[in-house]
Design a binder for these strands. Structure first.
Lengths: 202, 202
DNA sequence: CTTGTATCAGACTGAACGGTCTGCTACAAC
DNA sequence: GTTGTAGCAGACCGTTCAGTCTGATACAAG
């Protein structure tokens, strides 16, 4: 049975995730992943049928972790009574974690997955799309509750506004890369919260 | 002298831009570019010393065009008297062009340039960074004027708020890709304008 | 102890890639 | 007309890559 099976497998996934996030998918060779994870060709292709297969699992795992963060944030703000403040606390949750996030990863795997579409397994944008929809659905209902509490239901497109959190994350990743300054992540999330505060409190 | 020189060169650049935007830089082979532009290896390497060289010129040209759009937008809203309305008209300029933009390109070249860093010529993120700074500088001064007109100078980080337009563009490109729906570009720019309106008019 | 199987190692292969080289073609200068 | 050169064509080359294959190793079951 497993000598070191699951460990090797996850080590490959971890190393590959880091490399793909840093350099892109096509620019990351299997040999590179093997060397960085201290394993071999035989081991790699024992665990993954192809490079595309690895990419698919990578995206799936990343999207799952992403949705898990969403759930954690929702649980965190559940206790905030006022719906408007709950929305702001929800975004604030990510503001607080922004700096740590940027020390852990220099970019989002989604960016590579969406840019190098044909390189990841065919339906690999599927998990991304589903994650986006999960964020939209949950955040939009927070926003709807806040708008309803102020008697302003229907005044704004809560779906688009909810998507704007994803947009802020992805855009901020690219902004950080273009300037080399990871502090932009926190700054952009803070701006978004300030904008939301103005909209919901006006 | 030139038989068809400048035409062939720009045709290669045009075709390469489209392919790189669609599929990424590493996934676009020189052979592919040659075939799609109806030219040959000899011609390609006569005009560009390497694939990286092409990438560098591609990014430079794209960034120049990007800054040109900024200048056009600024000129367009110059006549708007009220500083707050001028800011909203500035963003509105892009809202109006969003749908057309998405028919012309399915993504932003910046995304590929920033993701596949090592593949484009060494300083290729330079032009991107300079373009970002140009947008920030010009848009931030519009924002500062609007804040000053309402006697609220210093209340918000106008630099970060200005960067948020870039963030919205790039994030919306990825959102469109993840859902396959190009209408998100317009929706996100519209949301950003609505948020700015709430902030500046409150 | 033997057998079966999951795991891993690494030499090898065929294809694709970026880039080179030789030479052709059209035009300009004289 | 001759010569020089920018522009272009495409065969060719060395390397790198994803993926295969043969076999070793360790452990579980009987």
């Amino acid at each position: 049975m497993p000598r070191d099976g699951t460990t090797t497998r996850t080590r490959i996934l971890d190393v590959a995730e880091r490399l793909v996030i840093d350099n892109g998918f096509a620019a990351t060779s299997v040999d590179e992943i093997i060397e960085a994870s201290g394993t071999s060709k035989g081991s790699f292709f024992h665990h993954f049928s192809s490079k595309r297969d690895l990419a698919g699992e990578l995206v799936q795992r990343y999207a799952d972790a992403d949705v898990a963060v969403l759930r954690r944030a929702l649980a965190e703000v559940e206790t905030v009574a006022d719906p408007v403040e709950r929305v702001l606390a929800f975004v604030g949750f990510f503001v607080d974690q922004a700096d740590q996030l940027m020390t852990e990863q220099s970019n989002c795997l989604y960016v590579a997955a969406l840019t190098e579409r044909q390189l990841v397994s065919d339906g690999a944008t599927g998990p991304v799309g589903r994650a986006v929809e999960a964020w939209r659905a949950d955040f939009a209902s927070l926003l709807d509750a806040a708008l309803a509490a102020r008697g302003r239901t229907g005044e704004v497109d809560s779906g688009a506004l909810a998507d704007h959190l994803f947009v802020t994350f992805e855009g901020a990743f690219l902004l950080c890369r273009s300037t080399g300054d990871p502090s932009h992540m926190r700054a952009q999330l803070t701006s978004f919260r300030a904008l939301l505060a103005a909209l919901l409190r006006e």
